[in-house]
Write a protein that binds this DNA or RNA. Sequence first.
RNA 1: GCGAAAGUGGCGGAAUUGGUAGACGCGCGAGACUUAGGAUCUCGUGGGGGUCCUCCCCCGUGGGGGUUCGAGUCCCCCCUUUCGCACCA
Length: 897
Amino acid sequence: MARPDPVDGRVPYTPTSVTRIPSIVSTPMAYPFHDIEPKWQQYWEEHQTFRTPDEVPDEDAEKCYVLDMFPYPSGSGLHVGHPEGYTATDIVARYKRMQGAHVLHPMGWDAFGLPAEQYALKTNTHPRETTKTNIAQFKRQLKRLGFSYDWEREINTTDPDYYRWTQWIFLQLYKKGLAYQSEEPVWWCEELGTVLADEEVIDGKSERGGYPCERVATRQWVLKITDYADRLLEGLDDLDWPQSTKQMQRNWIGRSEGANVYFDLVDVDDSLEVYTTRPDTLFGATYMVLAPEHDLVDAITTDEQRAAVETYRQEALQKSDVERQQEGKTGVFTGGYAVNPVNGEEIPVWVADYVLASYGTGAIMAVPAHDERDYAFAQTYDLPIREVVEGGDIAQAAYVDDGPHVHSANEDISLNGLHTDAAKEKITEWLEQEGEGEHEVNYQLRDWLFSRQRYWGEPFPIVFTEDGEDKPVPEDELPVTLPDIETFEPSGSPEGPLSNIEDWVQTTDPETGAPARRETNTMPQWAGSCWYYLRFIDPGNDELPVDPEKENYWMPVDLYVGGSEHAVLHLLYARFWHKVLYDAGVVSTQEPFQTLVHQGMILGEKEYTTYETEDGERVSAEHVDDGVDTRTGDAVTAVEVDEEDVEKAGDAFVLAEQPEVQVEARSHKMSKSRGNVINPDDVVDAYGADTLRLYEMFMGPLEQDKPWSTDDVEGVHRFLNRVWRLVIDDESDTLRVTDDAPDREQLRVLHETIQQVTEDIEQLDFNTAIAAMMEFVNAANKWEALPRAVAEPFVLLLSPFAPHIAEELWSRLGHDASLAHADWPEYDETLLQREVVEMAVQVDGTVRATIEIEADADEDEVLAAAKAEDNVARHLEGKDIQREIYVPGQIVNFVTG
RNA sequence: GCGAAAGUGGCGGAAUUGGUAGACGCGCGAGACUUAGGAUCUCGUGGGGGUCCUCCCCCGUGGGGGUUCGAGUCCCCCCUUUCGCACCA
């Protein structure tokens, strides 16, 4: 029964109560969001309120390109996670528009991909149909949230007018020699009927679906992203991106600096090249290791050792990468020896699978004294360990840190006494002089496997002549469109479904007219998303992917918001293409996305979980790990309990009736199997789009993961009701603002709100901006009357967050046009000043009183007033004041002896 | 194991050139209006204590030390959680 949940590996969840779904019946006193939201959405559409002109603006105004990561339109529709990032960017876009900037804020669809194809396999529905239906659903859902997209610029990666240019960019890569074919050992997944890229396979199983995969060699297209490794690395420095994302990209690129060193082989007329980042430890090399796949294994292996080496090699090739890592280090001696160029010493050559064929030269010099892996191996096989860097105890462990070098000299050169950096430099120089090696840079980044054996992707603009030569389809013949297809059965081989469409596959050589065959692989889903931000700038262009003048105006993207799951792949691939396009003169910037923000994940409502054994006995959560009682090893079942049956005891939650039983209190990722998914449509039905937008921004910091709370949604909804009633009289449905001049206090409250909201939007601190508006409403509710001159700026402040209610109030306040292009309110410093300020008075650092004092009082007056406070005087009695600390407007501290 | 981020009331979270901890919201309590309240409004709400209870005291931002007149904020050590990487020579 207790099988781990496929989503998060936890014990199955037994719901004892259903997640509360917002009541569909709205409360009678609620403001009429059901009427005003569709009304304003229609208004914006009819008036093309958010249309960004096709032509580059003449006047000299700030431009702002605000971009969301466009969604894959899945069949399950919009998730509450989507509106989080989309609302954040929408607030910025609307704010910038009101500040007079030219704003580009588009939306589109990343619509190629595996799910539609798998659905086609099951139902025989053409992926084009599925995609069309899903896009319609997504678009309807997005439109009812009131985002200010310029829908005239909508793009769809599966549209031939779009992928024509994806193919065109591929041809630029091809012509620059950055796209090549290669027999690659790739992951073939029988179940999915396709090969997958390394990054799409986790622990030997497909990332999507978790199906087993195996390694097979097939002809693939590969993009030479490694040529751009250094530029991709250096470009990160100037980007305003999360540090963690930059770090992940740096790690992924994995640049290291070291040296290649040549070791002559004994009795074999060849030499062995190794890569090392520690050439300074060369004198400490006591053996060599080849990867099992290394070319020289056969030549080096002696006859006596051949059988053992062959056996080991066969075993290693069967193992997956994970299996190779699981056990301790294993290896076998080849019987051969290599000569250390630095001292002429003959050292044994081993084969071991802890050395990877795919990195460096696939061979290493082992320095067990100063490398943990080599140390472990040397201990297992009783190989010598020779110290060449002082500082550790090599009888105990490898010493990998810096220290003075020892035992590192020959007739020519000595590293003795040098530290690592200097020693590296000196030995590398010497190796280069002697022709025994050279400085070398290596990367963990691999070239990008760019072809997939699928139907629903961009066809490659490549044909093969009868003698197998590949030729590009001329640019003016693009796009190469996908053929229609009757059945979606996999071809059963690593070749994709297109290979079965003979009519389509058969074509002619564009140069000679001779018979030729089309490439039947298609591009991976990443392709379309690598450049879509450029197409939004000029979506209708049929001459070029993007017009250079427009590109020059709008690029780079000023704010890019999307999930951190794209921290490496999408964002690295897009940067790579961008740099290629830069070199091709297509774009004018080195980097596509200047500022990047990842929105956090929205989790389900907090759940209280207890565990019980088969006999129904409660097990305290502290004893449960992975669905098992850690004391007995018995499986336990998770049972949800109501919040009311739980109380806090110390740091933990416990059952109220059984305080010895700890309860697990946490929020889980939303998932169908857990039954905690919130559908945005339900929330909009019950509370309106403005409430959903505002709530998602009020939950907490944008970048943080946050649990959903329907109670909190209601709180935000109440706030919007209060805003409505602040401006509109409920009984008469008329305005309740006056044309009286606001008083000083009202202006101060307003201007404080303007300042806070403006600064918070700039910082993307939307939660505190909303808190500031709540404070405004709380204050304004206490006023006798609301002056129009205060109400109107407030409505403008609210409008980026809750645009529908703001438009309606703006209109009722007597404005004919939308507020979307109204001027953003500015605050007046002089109005922020308070006449009377409150200051804390401390005695020896503890607050003993607060005093209210004129803002312009001088220090002496403040100190006198402070000392006059009864409680302060009492604490000062009988003591000498040693120091008087005075921080204007904030604090007074009397320090006694 | 390595790297990064984060630990603040019953809950989500505010506040870091060091200056009144707990803004704002939820929840909870009391009251008003009301036939009713799961609507709305008002007030209260970190914990503990006190014979001046519209006042005062003590404790309090994961734990322990330190710097400072003053530390959620700065420094050192430790614990926990989340995410990423994980034989890359």
